[in-house]
Amino acid sequence: MGSDDITVVICAYTHRRWNDLCSSITSVVTQAPPPFELLVVTDHNDELGDDVVDFVARTTPTVPVRVLRNTGPQGLSGARNTGVAAARTAVVAFLDDDATADDGWVQTMVAGYTDGRVRGVGGHARARWPGGRRPGWFPAEFDWVVGCSYPGQPTVCEPVRNFIGANMSLRRDDIIAAGGFHTGLGRVGRIPLGCEETELCIRITRSSAGARLVFDPAMAVAHRVTEDRTSPRYYLRRCYAEGVSKAAVSGLVGAADGLASERTYTAVVLPRGIASRIGGLVGLVPATAAARSRAEMATQSAMIVAGALVTAAGYARARLSGATVPERADSQIPIAVAQPALRKSGT
């Protein structure tokens, strides 16, 4: 397999991220080696699609770029399915419209597919905070709130249950065989629901004995965090929405798989994070930084507890209310273009 077996899909829905989107596109078309193609899918926003076409024409990238309009239901899942359907390569990679791929992103991704059992390769998403500094109250254990990697994720290449949606790739045939991303899940506009990639990854690994999804931290992207996502209000709102999303996924795939990673995270990662901060509070801290450091450690400990409780509340309410996600249709991929990949080499 080579870089010409990779199609990159970027989904976009708003002009509010225009500068980020342009940077994201640029980070893909300047990859060495380059992917076969970049698909930019706009989500029911024709004006945005036209502007992307103009931007691509002005920049004249050496990598082919196609701008598509989401032909499925509005939302990230529908847009991703449109990209998968239009792709013509063995692997489809997904990059968020506010994320930029590091140099060598495609090359690292390709190396991960050497083993034919590997059905997907994902990587690290580091937060790019406003002003270059994380808010003092924001615990790193909850960086998933802003779509970024967090403590507890692998620090070396190893199998995982699912990827962070901002930076992942999957074999196209597997996505199509699984029916695509569930359009009853996933972000629609600014509504902070998610877990559509979790549900799809679980279905893919269930479908084939020995199938592996591999996390490689060297396959990295920078994911911008906007100012509006750095408030405690957004933090708690997103935690609650995550609980609701986890309940939806568990209802579809069962709690054993739907909560497998979350059990370890809750039982190990969060207690370890609190313990380390308490240790800092009672330990020796340089006098010049004592007040600030201790205040931040205490606040972060409280926010870890608050985030865990609010997430659990969202999960419990969704389960107790009997709210369900409609059963997935046999395929969420637009039928007219869900054709086998035209390019394949190696495994």
Rank of each mutant, 00 (worst) to 15 (best):
S250H: 04
G123Y: 03
L252V: 10
V53L: 11
P271N: 02
V156P: 00
S293E: 09
G152F: 00
G72F: 00
A57T: 08
A218C: 05
A291S: 09
Q332E: 15
T230E: 06
E242Q: 14
M168H: 01
Y265V: 03
A336K: 12
A87R: 11
Y13K: 04
S77R: 08
V84R: 10
V249D: 04
L236H: 04
R187I: 03
A177F: 10
Q153E: 15
V8C: 13
G104A: 10
E199T: 01
A85L: 03
A329N: 11
G283L: 08
I304H: 06
A260V: 04
V56Q: 09
M297I: 00
R317E: 14
G83F: 06
V146A: 05
A12E: 04
L284N: 11
G49C: 07
Y265H: 11
A260N: 03
T30A: 10
I278A: 07
V160P: 03
T7Y: 07
R294K: 14
T324E: 08
V106Q: 08
V160D: 02
F55R: 12
D257E: 15
I204V: 15
G116L: 10
V91S: 01
A125L: 10
G116N: 09
V188G: 00
P35S: 11
L281W: 09
A218H: 04
E196I: 01
G243M: 14
C22P: 00
S276T: 15
T226L: 13
P151E: 01
E37I: 06
G258V: 03
D54K: 15
E327F: 00
R190I: 15
V305N: 02
Y234L: 05
V9K: 07
T30W: 12
A127S: 11
G72W: 00
M219N: 05
R66C: 01
A289E: 15
T230A: 02
T183V: 11
R171C: 08
G165N: 13
G280R: 14
S231G: 14
